[in-house]
Design a protein around this nucleic acid. Sequence first.
DNA 1: GTTCTCACA
DNA 2: TGTGAGGA
Length: 115
Amino acid sequence: MTPAEKGLYPISEVEKRTGLSARQIRYYESMGLVSPTRTNGGQRRYSEKDVLRLIQIKQMKESGFGLKSIKEKIQVFERNLEELSLSDVNHDREVLSSLFPVSNRAVLMKLLEKK
DNA sequence: GTTCTCACA
DNA sequence: TGTGAGGA
């Protein structure tokens, strides 16, 4: 991967890193679960955040959640993530942690630490 | 060669 | 969700 493209992955890379099929990745995008940027040629470029989010989605799916539930969780997560930059961090950590099952805590904390 | 969209025996 | 067609 060239230096200029660091942090931006083509769908083939995301497939490897998430274990999801390109079909699924594109489908989730249609549901508003991820928002990859596009190259001039129209190809998707996923950020580190997108990859992490897709991994969360995969884990939730494995935890038995339907895509409908996952979409709701993601939206709640997004809303709280915005508030995170404006309010008390420790309080939000508790709120966010309560929104995810134990299996997703690790990913969640990783996201929060990057903030 | 890779990815994109659309559509479906 | 997969897969093939037809383009870029």
